[in-house]
Structure formats: C-alpha cells, structure tokens
Write a protein that binds this DNA or RNA. Sequence first.
DNA 1: ACGAGATCCTTGCGCGCGCAACCTTTTCTT
DNA 2: AAGAAAAGGTTGCGCGCGCAAGGATCTCGT
Lengths: 163, 163
Amino acid sequence: MDSPLHDERLTLAGLFFESYAGLASSLGRRLEAECGLTVQWFEVLMRLARSPEGRLRMSDLTAQVTLTPSGLTRVIDRLEAAGLVSREACPTDRRGSLAVLTEQGRARMEVAVPIHLGHLEDLFTGVLDDEERVQLEHALRKVRDRVNPCATAGVADPAAHVG
Amino acid sequence: MDSPLHDERLTLAGLFFESYAGLASSLGRRLEAECGLTVQWFEVLMRLARSPEGRLRMSDLTAQVTLTPSGLTRVIDRLEAAGLVSREACPTDRRGSLAVLTEQGRARMEVAVPIHLGHLEDLFTGVLDDEERVQLEHALRKVRDRVNPCATAGVADPAAHVG
DNA sequence: ACGAGATCCTTGCGCGCGCAACCTTTTCTT
DNA sequence: AAGAAAAGGTTGCGCGCGCAAGGATCTCGT
C-alpha cells in the first residue's frame, strides 16, 4: 500500500479539494436560495462594500477576486443588470472604469452578510475549536503565500498596498 | 473594524478559497503542460488506477469524484476519445456502464503520478512541517465530514478514517 | 407475473469562465 | 514632442459543467 497511488500527499490534497468542493457547493446553494446571490456576486459585492464609498477600479477588483479581467467584466455586467452595481468613469484615468455599489446593492449585502456568516459558522468554522481554527489559518496562510505570493495586499488595508 | 464585513469567519473562509484557487490553478497548469492531463482527468484516471483491474462503474465513479453523472459522462467521452479509457457493458446490470483504464491510460498515469506528486510537494505539502500537515488534515477532515457526510466510502483505502 | 416506481446513464440546453484579439489611453524612450 | 510599448477594459469564441428530460433496465409490492 505504499504505492505512489496511495501517497499521503495525494490523500491530503484530496481532502483539501473535497472539503473545498463540498463547502463551496453547500454555501453557494444556501446563498442562492436565501439571498439570490451567487458566491461570485457575494465576493465582488463584499469587496466593494469594504472599500471607501463602495467604489473600486476594475483592475483592483480583478486583483482581489479570483477572476480574470474578462470574467470580472461579465460579472459586473450582470450585477449592473441586477441593479446592485453601477459603472462610473474613472476620474484620473480615462481608460479605467469604476464599479460602484448602488444603494440597492448595499441594502442587499446588509441582509446577506449576516446570513452568510451563519452558514459559514454552521458548515465551516463551527466544526472547529479555537485552536483548530488558528492552526488551520496558519497552514492555509502558508499555502496561500506559496501559490499566490502577490496576495497580502488589497482588502481596504491602507498599510498594505504595493503596486 | 468589528463590522460584519471584517468578521474573522470571512477571513478564514477567504483564505481557504484563495488557497484552493491558487493551488488548483497552479497544479492544473503544470499538469496540463507536463502531462497533457486536466485535473479532472487525473482525478478520474486515479480512481480507476486504484480500483481492481482498473475498472469502475460510472455510478461509483460519480460518487468518488466531484462531478454529476452528466459531467462524468462527458469526461469519460473525452477520455475515451483520447484512448485512455474505454467503456464496457456491466455484466451484472444491463443499465450500467463500466469505465476501464486502457494500457495507454495506465502508462500515462505511471508517468503522471510521480510528476504530480512532485508538484504537490513543491506547492502544497512542502510548505508545511509534519505537525502542520497533521493538524491541517485533522481540520479538513472535520470540515469534509460536515459538508459531505456520505464520503468516507469507496477509495479502497483500508485506513480511511470515519468521523 | 405484472405494473409502478426507482435507478443508471446519456443528451439538449444554457451559463459562466478563460484565452486571445482588439481599441483606447497612458507611460516610457529618445 | 513623437513614436513605441505597456496597461485598462471589453468582446468573440470555445469549453466544461450542471440541470432537466428521456430511454432503458432493474426492483418491489401485490
């Protein structure tokens, strides 16, 4: 049983992917059913809600969410069609576009965030005790830094912006 | 900063999703470049390779990989077109279909598995020490059991833990 | 034994995403 | 100051997936 087909690294990775898939799927189903929001939508609206005046450049948004520029364009298209976001011209760079949270968008998030937090607690953080959460965060941070070194910026954290 | 928009549960979940996305994307790119295999393909071929005689019913495969029956049908279609898998009739149930690893498929996996293990080591398990790996596995197992209780079957892994 | 319902797999369809190509605007080079 | 190169965003296209519907086969109650 020490064949490469049963290597412990495969087991750990499998567990990781399986956990992710299950979590994303359950979370997505509930969020959609109770808030009418996709996980992607939530993610984008979240980043906007965290930003000053609820506005962010497309390129900044692209860097924060796991999405290519073209993917983000479509998401914003749909969010705009749904009335949750609107586009504005960037005042300092005429190439640029700003995504801004509408009143309706903010209202939706004020409902959705607590609900989503409940789901998270129920399906994810609730099954771990404090120590386990700390250890998990530690391990995930190391992995994240390995596979995505240029993260650690973004999130409305004024002390962290690189270029 | 204690607004629901900065809840620690969101941070942990964000870290989880970000790690997953980065890992899946890096792993996928490398596997494709060096072995000509999608992560999905690898996953399916892996399950087959682990099974006696390299054969498995579609329904069993569906249960093991994160894919709906229709999704699996298409994957097997492509794998069959690529000559890595073939279909056989199920001898005990005429509704059923068996996916079986071809010689070519097995040969491909004999090359791909060690390469993939290397990538895993490089991008994932290598950044963690023994204790961190154990802790991560522990936490992930709890999450997996919460979101996907009916796993813990299949895999021909006698050491698989129940939760 | 027979029909109702469940199970297995496949197909039509639509959706969301990434890639590459494109246009516009900014920045760099000289 | 002018041309070259880079960056920001959007679109055409194709792909892989899930959902719902469908045909074939098995199972179970009577």
